[in-house]
Design a protein around this nucleic acid. Structure first.
Length: 547
RNA sequence: GCCCCCGUAGCUCAGCGGAUAAGAGCGAGGGACUUCUAAUCCCUAGGUCGCAGGUUCGAAUCCUGCCGGGGGCGCCA
């Protein structure tokens, strides 16, 4: 997106131009345009005078005065007035001409509105690994949160202009897998799984789906079981609108000697030593609180060793950045992986390890129990059957990834305005209804109209709605850089609220007779609908035409 | 023993790379419109931003300590 597609970027540029005139080159200072809490403080406020005053050795309020004048010259009729406030803030009141031409800019940008926001800091090739749940059982609600988060993050990063690769790491070897296979074998023979095995009923069902399972060698049964389980997992994720570019199998690291090569490489670089019969990686030299075992005294490789090799492989593929979305139980693992990454020659900042917090399901305030041990856990399939994909994704995305999330099934099921996802979808559907009512002719006429030339004074609800629309590009950029899809749920809700208020105050179809501007309102509704649809798409939630 | 997350209105939570005067939804109370989808909107009440220090012209936001809640780790995967 160029600044020509983003009215706020143009406004910021105008501010920078005025500041530059005051001071030459405003290098090193961040000139911010904030949204004041109340309309009396204007449409936007800036701390620029405070920032500039220090370098100019002048009173901030005097600087604010002069900046206001300069800005008036740069913005011309777009600026209604500028007021100095507090210690040296400048409150800006934009004119209807600004709102009108801004809407025209948004419409001209079309599909590009809000896209490519990452261009300024630079686009990157980003490898995102998420879910990576062991193929020993169905996707749980905790993993569902990973799926929703990782997928939405990828959508946002891609929309912001990055090249994103989505990857699922499959732990298809090791002790857990062995227990899984043994449980399958037991079920196939009609026996109970071993004490430390997997006891869920799905194991028996899976075993029943493997011809001759009771007589297969354990290796073959393992391969078949993992394959079937993973197919089920992928199908569930597909249903949840989550897809991957690549499933990476841990087994391939063993069979192709990648782990051995990685260990040799680390040894060459002097990061490895032997002690107590085990082989260790000296992670403590790189920020970890102790060294970590790569090969146990028994000769067995650790899970960590495989993961180091996996990251060596990632590093060799040459992405600008790798993001690992990990479970809460992996937080102790962050320091050692980061150390390994650096030992492998990676730049520390190019590996991001994001820790997801847990999900609690509640039902009207009561906690719903989830116990994987007993095989009585809520699966993603069950969650989708209960509340639907849209509600599930929305509620799982609503909170920051690093905070514990309570999902109220009763609320998520509800089809009422109390339920935010329905509220937002309803606003979208309602706009669709208005446009159907208007008909193609009026919409075409509105599209051809000169919005800026409109004479009528805008209703406050119209201005407020345009302003919320203009927030979209920077909101997307923030969501991308802070890896924070949850902010988009808040934005979508605010935009929907803005539309609902506008809808109440302003007749759209046939507005001309009541003093409003039908063309402007049709175009505004359309832009609002498109932006709601885009925000929902980035969250992986559908935007219905009718409800 | 070590580590992570959280503590903001009655409830659920945004905000937390500092900045004028703290936000939303639900719940509570009051009201509007009788429509282009009432699956709506507006107003009111309600907060020592866990506590105590510190940095700063300025802290819910950054730092330190403490208290309370949740969770994790310690050649498991």
């Amino acid at each position: 997106m160029t600044s020509l597609d983003d009215p706020m970027a143009e406004l910021r540029a105008a501010l920078a131009a005025a500041a530059a005139e005051l001071r030459g080159s405003p290098a090193g200072v961040e000139l911010r345009l904030d949204r004041p809490p109340r309309p009396e403080f204007g449409d936007f406020s800036t701390n620029a005078p405070l920032q500039l005053a220090a370098g100019l050795d002048a009173q901030p309020r005097a600087v604010a005065d002069r900046l206001g004048e300069l800005l008036g010259r740069v913005l011309g009729p777009d600026l209604d007035r500028a007021e100095v406030a507090g210690p040296g803030f400048l409150n800006l009141f934009l004119s209807d001409r600004f709102w009108r031409s801004s809407l025209a800019t948004v419409i001209a940008a079309g599909e590009r509105f809000g896209a490519g926001a990452a261009a300024t800091p630079g686009t990157e090739r980003i490898l995102v690994e998420f879910v990576s749940a062991n193929p020993t059982g169905p996707i749980t609600v905790a993993a569902a949160r990973h799926a929703a988060y990782g997928d939405s993050l990828c959508r946002i990063l891609a929309f912001a202009g990055h090249a994103v690769e989505r990857e699922y790491y499959v732990n298809d070897t090791g002790a857990q897998i062995r227990r899984f296979a043994e449980s399958l074998a037991a079920r196939a023979r009609g026996e109970e799984p071993p004490e430390d095995g997997y006891r869920g009923t799905y194991v028996a069902e899976l075993a029943a789906g493997i011809p001759g399972a009771a007589d297969l060698p354990l290796d073959a049964l393992t391969a078949r079981g993992v394959q079937l389980m993973l197919a089920g997992v992928a199908a569930t994720l597909e249903r949840f609108r989550v897809s991957f570019d690549r499933f990476f199998f841990e087994r391939s690291l063993h069979s192709e000697g990648a782990i051995r090569r990685t260990l040799a490489l680390l040894d060459e670089r002097g990061h490895v030593y032997a002690s107590e019969g085990a082989t260790w990686l000296r992670t403590s030299a790189l920020g970890d609180d102790k060294d970590r075992v790569l090969r146990r005294s028994s000769g067995e490789l650790t899970y960590f060793a495989a993961d180091v090799a996996y990251h060596e492989e990632k590093l060799r593929r040459g992405p600008d950045r790798a993001i690992d979305v990990l479970g809460a139980d992996h937080h102790g693992y962050v320091a050692r992986m980061k150390a390994a990454w650096v030992a492998l020659g990676g730049e520390p900042d190019r590996l991001e390890l994001l820790i997801m917090q847990l999900v609690n399901l509640t039902e009207g305030g009561r906690r719903v129990q989830m116990s994987k041990r007993e095989g009585e856990f809520v699966t993603l399939d069950e969650l989708i059957d209960d509340i639907g994909v849209d509600a599930a994704r929305w509620f799982l995305l609503q909170r920051s990834h690093d905070t514990t999330l309570d999902l109220d099934l009763a609320l998520a099921r509800e089809q009422s305005p109390d339920n935010p996802v329905y509220y937002v979808q309803y606003a979208h559907a309602r706009i669709a209804a208005i446009r159907r009512r208007a008909g193609e002719q009026r919409i075409a006429a509105a599209g051809a109209a000169d919005l800026v030339a409109g004479e009528t004074s805008l209703h406050p609800s119209e201005r407020a709605l345009v302003r919320r629309l203009l927030d979209f590009p920077s909101e997307v950029a923030t969501c991308a850089t802070r890896r924070a899809p949850h902010r988009l749920t808040a934005y979508a809700l605010e935009l929907a609220q803005g539309f609902s208020a506008f809808y109440r105050d302003c007749r759209v179809v046939g507005a001309g007779e009541e003093g409003g501007d039908e063309a402007f309102r049709l175009v505004l509704s359309g832009a609002c609908q498109a932006t709601l649809a885009r925000a929902l798409d980035l969250l992986g939630v559908e935007a219905p035409e009718s409800m």
